[in-house]
């Protein structure tokens, strides 16, 4: 690659500097459509080209693998100054291909180590407000997929994920994942899931601190959503969260509430088999709980015959030993319940 165009600077460091200069120009240029000046277009075109070259250094191409040394130089120069902020701010002004390249560059940089340090993380911790821009991206259909992809890469860093979890954006995700635009809604759902599953200790801390509002929202907006996809994704994620060892305190609390049981039992009678099966994985926690509150026992007893009838021919399409074992235990528990005085 090098030496093909001798007139242009080609080292990774030079490329980053050139990109930065171009982005500063883009940032300051007036975006009013009246300016039809050719110089501006030329700069945009150059920027697109340079972004492509940066991407090739980081990802390699069909002929060559990326070179670690070049990647490290690029990363170091990138975070030496405020280049990432420029990337994010200027993204809406770029064309589609340049946006995709920029997004992939930012994503890749989150994993690059310089002297065995993730310097992207250090940078983000000092510029954490950038996460506010990225998270708000879901409100803008044109930017959602790009900012969303960047955000998901940034929350690989635990400190960054903690910031987002504790921010006001967290509440908005309950709406983002139900946006009518499927690709955006699905992207938001992926980010939501990542936030709630990736960093175990942070998630456990978040859930215990925010238990009340979080599960109130989770139940009413997601598990009881009229939207099939929302319910299906939410019940799966709920199972993933509650069955994680690190969330055992939260699980115990969740499985002691009659309101939660009510929602789960309604999901058990959905016509969608997939939802039923996922609901079972959460329902079993209520049944298997050795310290069931009296009101939970009452409901299970009151519906005992129907539950047993439901479970009698309840099985996933694929044979699953674990599922059968769980089911047998749940059936035993329910069959053996004694009504208690309340």
């Amino acid at each position: 690659m090098k030496g093909l165009f001798k007139s242009k600077p080609k080292t990774p460091v030079d490329l980053v500097r050139q990109t930065r200069d171009l982005l500063i120009f883009v940032d300051s240029s007036n975006s009013s459509s009246s300016s039809k000046d050719s110089k501006r277009d030329e700069k945009f075109a150059t920027l697109s080209k340079v972004l492509r070259e940066l991407k090739q250094i980081l990802y390699g191409n069909s002929e060559a693998e990326p070179v670690a040394e070049a990647c490290a130089q690029l990363t170091q120069e990138f975070f030496k100054q405020n280049t990432l902020r420029l990337f994010i701010i200027c993204l809406p002004k770029l064309n589609l291909e340049a946006r995709k390249d920029a997004t992939q560059i930012v994503a890749n940089l989150q994993r690059q180590q310089v002297h065995s340090r993730l310097i992207a993380c250090d940078y983000l911790e000092k510029n954490i407000d950038l996460m506010d821009i990225l998270a708000s991206g879901y409100e803008n259909p044109d930017m959602a997929l790009h900012y969303g992809a960047m955000l998901r890469e940034c929350i690989r860093h635990q400190s960054v994920a903690r910031y987002v979890l504790e921010s006001q954006h967290m509440k908005k995700f309950f709406d983002f994942i139900q946006l009518p635009n499927f690709d955006i809604a699905a992207d938001a759902a992926a980010t939501f899931k990542e936030l709630l599953t990736r960093h175990k200790s942070t998630v456990a801390e978040f859930l215990s601190k925010n238990y009340d509002w979080f599960f109130a929202e989770y139940n009413s907006k997601l598990l009881e959503s009229p939207n099939y996809i929302t319910r299906r994704q939410a019940i799966k994620l709920l199972g993933d969260m509650l069955l994680d060892r690190s969330n055992s305190a939260v699980m115990t609390r969740y499985a002691s509430s009659v309101d939660n049981l009510r929602i789960l039992m309604n999901l058990l009678r959905e016509s969608s088999k997939s939802i039923q099966i996922e609901a079972f994985h959460v329902f079993k926690l209520f049944a298997a709980n050795q310290h069931k509150p009296a009101d939970i026992v009452s409901i299970l007893v009151a519906n005992r015959s129907k539950l047993l009838r439901l479970f009698a021919d309840f099985k996933p399409d694929k044979e699953d030993e674990q599922f059968e074992a769980d089911k047998a235990q749940v059936v035993r528990e329910i069959a053996g319940l004694e009504p208690r005085e309340t």
Partner: peptide, 9 residues
């Protein structure tokens, strides 16, 4: 499918 649950306490 089960038609309805008894949530009476």
């Amino acid at each position: 499918r089960i038609s309805g649950w008894n949530f009476s306490l």
